[in-house]
Design a protein around this nucleic acid. Structure first.
Lengths: 341, 341
DNA sequence: CTGAAAGCGCTAACAC
DNA sequence: GTGTTAGCGCTTTCAG
């Protein structure tokens, strides 16, 4: 493993000079630059990243902590997001550190990575209405960017889709199709997007003068199995809904199955909609009406925001003059109508 | 940010002593240990990981490079695997570095991570029959463990499922159900598992005296879309198959859709089988007959092998006495029969 | 233009 | 038991 010192010895120059020659800047004579670069190449020199980082006091790494439950290791949504983040990170020359944690260990893992200086910033996703991760990171002024807002504050960079508006378009669509008895299947309402979306549905239904009785709102989990279960409940009600709004695609898939089991014709007897437009949505049968979110691109966008946030903290770049307002993106959701509704 | 030096100054001890007291070992007086540990806690000391690593000459990080094509960022298979690897890594106290690369940049990314000493080893998956990544890592004696073997050599740690045997069980199952005109949809045969599985099908069909004409073997890609396309070809043949063996679950889902479009009753008119048993397999309609692979556990197992491989290279541990034979695991596949066949 | 010296934070060999 | 000294590989003043 060849070091600056090695090549210094070879060309009879000091380590310093070699370092400078290689880094390109600072004044070094063109001759030595050539000389050094030649030797470096010949000897197969590659800088030791760890050493560079120690000295720069930077990890050149961004972190993402993905929660897992006993059920469902890998939700399709996260995979997509991760891919987007990963691609952007490599384009920015940053490493991506991925850690998996159970919900109860999550915060302490954040703390550990922060205090060990193992990452320069975090991407956070699936925010909660009251999110202790965000409170923590904000309290120590550690860079992060999130996919999703929180309830009580918004003094940080984020990307958000307009969930209320999205739900308006869905309700409109269903009502146009003649549905009046509409149900929702939601993940826990402590999850920001879940509570926002439910609010959206409530609001639009009210505007249209339609009722949304409590029995039409089922709170469950994120996955298909649970979607199936909740939908079964709904469909076995004395007066079942004719349309089910799944708060994500997996839930909707479960609802479709539940409908099929009851010999309902999906898209006619029972309309089902999802949210996210994961790749499977288009391929499911029947194809799923859903809100399109460019998940991978969102991952990439959040990462870009994070990079800015990191740079802002670095005095060298402090003149980028980017206010927070330039680091808060709200995306306009798009309804994709397919055969399930 | 508090360092050893800081706490040394506080308690009037040398940095060395502090370091030793904290690390627990070496002889330090119980008093100073208490003193130092107290101060450390009070001051909120956390070691600087980067510094430790530089000095230990270790990255305490394992890497995985996941390939992506323009289509399909995140195959469900990889996500599962990643989750397994991630969990095991954190249990071992290792960071997981995830990088995304296009196929054509893949090898150079390996080289970059190796030469920058950014990882101590790699997990490799979806091996090719001739795999340049493996050739490279072996040639420089860099630790890795793979999910999947290669064709020409096997002097490295791996986990493999017995793909030939798996296919035997599938063919048996289909033939028992009365199928004789059986087709395969395979990813490129340069991919190890694909060629092994095809060999398995060929072998068993031959043993049973059944033909497997060329037109019954379609080579495509990994995803559902392509599965759909290939299956469409097959089903539009003058003499179409009555059973389709998809070489992974996504392909099988595509085939099921193609069948449905032609008004075939899946599981009766047309049998379809998959491979992997991703979570969706059970939830698809009809539920998919497939080979179960405990993907997340495999991820965890491969990671364990990798950790051993890394330790073996470290002189400190050289007496673990683990020969390669203990680091090569072949798993016995299990057929899960569901309604699609 | 180049080099010597210091330092990033930590660990380890070697004294005392 | 504890401190001194070196050193991991690199960057960055500060002098020449």
């Amino acid at each position: 493993m060849v070091t600056l010192k090695d090549i210094g010895e070879r060309v009879n120059k000091s380590v310093t000079t070699v370092s400078r020659a290689l880094s390109g800047c600072s004044d070094v004579s063109p001759d030595t630059i050539l000389l050094v670069k030649g030797a470096a190449k010949e000897m197969g020199y590659v800088p030791n990243t760890l050493a560079q980082r120690l000295q720069k006091k930077t990890a050149d790494t961004i972190g993402i902590i993905v929660p897992y439950s006993s059920t469902g290791y890998a939700e399709p949504f996260f995979s997509e997001l991760l891919a987007g983040i990963g691609k952007e990170a490599s384009e920015q020359g940053l490493d991506l550190l991925v850690a998996y944690a159970k919900k109860e260990n999550e915060l302490s893992l954040y703390k550990k990575l922060v205090s060990g200086r193992r990452v320069d910033g975090f991407v956070i996703s699936r925010t909660l209405c009251q999110d202790e991760r965000i409170d923590y990171l904000l309290s120590i002024n550690f860079p992060f960017a999130s996919f999703g807002m929180v309830e009580n504050r918004q003094d940080f960079p984020f990307v958000e889709e307009d969930g209320e508006y999205a739900m308006t378009t869905i309700v409109n669509h269903l009502v146009e199709r003649g549905h009046t008895r509409i149900a929702c299947i939601c993940p826990p309402l402590s999850v920001m997007f879940s509570s926002v979306r439910l609010r959206g549905v409530r609001k639009r239904m009210a505007e249209l003068g339609l009722p949304l009785p409590d029995e039409m709102v089922r709170i469950g989990s994120f996955d298909q199995k649970d979607g199936h279960e909740q939908a079964s409940h709904l469909l076995d009600l004395p007066n079942p809904p004719t349309a089910i709004i799944g708060f994500n695609d997996s839930i909707a898939f479960g609802a479709i199955n539940a409908g099929k089991e009851r010999a309902l014709k999906i898209g006619e007897d029972l309309a089902v909609t999802g949210f996210d437009d994961i790749p499977m949505a288009e391929m499911y049968r029947p194809p799923l009406t859903t809100i399109h979110q460019p998940i991978a691109e969102i991952g990439s966008l959040v990462t870009k925001l994070l990079v800015k946030a990191i740079q802002e903290k670095n005095p060298k770049y402090k003149d980028t003059g980017l206010g927070l307002e330039n680091m808060q993106v709200i995306m306009c959701p798009k309804l994709i109508i397919r055969e399930s509704s």
